[in-house]
């Protein structure tokens, strides 16, 4: 199991039934992923598993022992510093609780499509609730990040 690019100790067999969210937070000390609803509805625990945004509250750690997992703590190292910078510059963060999950959904999208449309951003964020209603700023920040990562491309 790799987390943020580094191999981590394989969970003990008795811990295989732990939720990935709990394993990340309580065993690895990666508290970026937040528990919101615990039912896959709100997206605040979203992490990237083998390139895909997934709610870590509905994954058992034993199901992803061979996976590459990215949490918000590893986003900058994975080349998504510009995305995080753009969230700051666009003031896309208010209370911040949803932001680790939102960033992971946006990062997984940008890895799939370096210059996404508004419709694609909307779809990528369809599992992430933000009650401070900063979605418009998320869109702007993703476009900024796309342009920053590909300065010679079409950009936003």
């Amino acid at each position: 199991m790799h987390v943020n690019g580094d191999p981590v100790a394989t969970p003990a067999e008795a811990d295989h039934g732990l939720r990935l969210l709990d394993y990340l937070r309580d065993h690895l000390g990666l508290t970026g992923a937040k528990e919101g609803c615990g039912m896959g509805e709100c997206g605040s625990c979203t992490v990237i598993i083998d390139g895909r945004a997934i709610t870590s509250c509905l994954v058992l750690v034993g199901q992803v022992l061979d996976a590459e997992i990215r949490t918000v703590e590893g986003l900058a190292a994975a080349g998504h510093g510009p995305l995080q910078d753009a969230f700051v510059a666009r003031q896309a963060v208010q209370c911040g609780y949803c932001i680790p999950g939102v960033l992971n959904s946006c990062a997984a999208l940008l890895d799939r499509d370096p210059d996404p449309t508004d419709a694609q951003i909307c779809e990528a964020l369809d599992g992430n609730l933000c009650r401070c209603t900063a979605y418009n700023r998320f869109y702007d920040a993703v476009h900024d990040a796309a342009a920053a990562r590909h300065p010679n491309g079409a950009g936003a």
Partner: peptide
């Protein structure tokens, strides 16, 4: 179906 995060699982 549901959301991107759920469809991925």
């Amino acid at each position: 179906f549901a959301s991107t995060t759920i469809r991925n699982r």
